[in-house]
Design a protein around this nucleic acid. Structure first.
Lengths: 150, 150
DNA sequence: CATATATTGTTTCTTTGTCAACAAAAACAG
DNA sequence: CTGTTTTTGTTGACAAAGAAACAATATATG
C-alpha cells in the first residue's frame, strides 16, 4: 500500500506543478479571457458538433454553468450557436474566426509547454513506455469499476 | 511529442475517474461537510503546526479562502485556532475531537479506495516501480523550472 | 535603534458555478 | 396516436473562491 500512497502523492504534485507553471503565462497571453471561457473554447474547437450537455459532462461542470458561459461567449463574438434542422431541442456551438484565434493561441502554448518537457520524455523512452502502459491499465481498471457501478 | 499527448490524456482521465469514483461515496459518508472543508481538515490533521499561508499554498487556494474556511470550521467546532507566544501575527490550527472524527472517516475511505486499486499495483510491481521513478523524475524536472522562474 | 520593506491574515467586492425549478421538445409505452 | 416520462437548455437564488485593499505585525537595512 505504501507505493500507492507515493503514487498518489507524485500524481497530485505533478498536476499541481503543471498547472502552476502554465497558469501565469496563459494568464498573460490570454488576458481578457477567463480560464473557464478558454477551456470551453478549447473544447468546442476540438469538438465541432457538441451541445450543452456534452460540454458539461466533458468539462465536469453543470449544464447551467455551460449555458451561462456559452451565452457570454456568444455575446462576445467568440462562438456561434446553431441547431440542426431535425432537432429543435439540442443546441450546438462552433467557433467564430475570433474564437478560432483564441483557440490557436491556447494551442500554441500547449505546444510550448510540451516542448519544455520534451527532454524528460526523450531521455528515457523505455520508462515512458512502461509508465504509459501502466496508466492505461489503471484507467481500464477504473473503467470496469465505473461500469459495474452503473 | 505524441507520447506526451498520450501521457497527458491518460493522466487527466485517471484523475477524473478517481475523483468520480470517490465523490459519491464521500459525499454520503461526510454528509454535511463540504469538500473544501474536508480537504482543509485533512491537511490540518496531517500537519499539526500549520498556519493560513501554509495551508493556502499547499491547497493551491488564496489566503482569503483559507481564512474563510477556517473561520467556518472554528464556528462549527472542528478546529481550534491558536498562536505561539513569540509570534502575534501567524495563526495556527489544530483539530478538535470532532474534527479528528471527520479526519478518521476520510482516512478510512482513502484506505478503502486504495484497497480497491491494490490489485493493479500488486500485479505488476516492476511497472509500478518504473512509473513511480518516472513521475518522480518529472516532478524534479518541474521543480527546477519553478525555482529558475523565481 | 529607527525606519523602510515584507509578510500575514482579514474583509469587501466581484466572478463563477451549483442547485433547483421550470418550459419546451423528444422519446417512450400502451 | 395519445398520454406519460425523460431529456435538454435556461433562469434565479445562493454559496464558494479569487483579487485587491487593508491593518497589524515581523523582518531587514542602514
Amino acid at each position: 500500500m505504501d507505493v500507492q500512497v507515493q503514487f498518489m502523492a507524485e500524481l497530485s504534485q505533478l498536476i499541481d506543478k503543471l498547472s502552476f507553471l502554465s497558469r501565469d503565462q496563459l494568464k498573460i497571453a490570454l488576458k481578457g479571457y477567463k480560464p473557464a471561457e478558454v477551456h470551453t473554447i478549447e473544447f468546442i474547437g476540438e469538438h465541432s458538433e457538441t451541445n450543452v450537455t456534452a460540454i458539461a459532462s466533458a468539462l465536469y461542470v453543470t449544464r447551467g454553468a455551460v449555458s451561462k458561459i456559452t451565452k457570454r461567449l456568444i455575446s462576445r463574438g467568440l462562438i456561434v450557436r446553431y441547431q440542426k434542422p431535425d432537432n429543435q431541442k439540442e443546441v450546438y456551438f462552433k467557433l467564430t474566426a475570433q474564437g478560432q484565434e483564441v483557440f490557436e493561441i491556447h494551442k500554441k502554448f500547449t505546444n510550448y509547454f510540451m516542448q519544455r518537457d520534451e527532454p524528460i520524455f526523450r531521455d528515457s523512452p523505455d520508462a515512458v513506455a512502461t509508465t504509459l502502459a501502466f496508466l492505461h491499465q489503471y484507467n481500464a481498471f477504473l473503467d470496469q469499476k465505473i461500469t459495474i457501478k452503473k
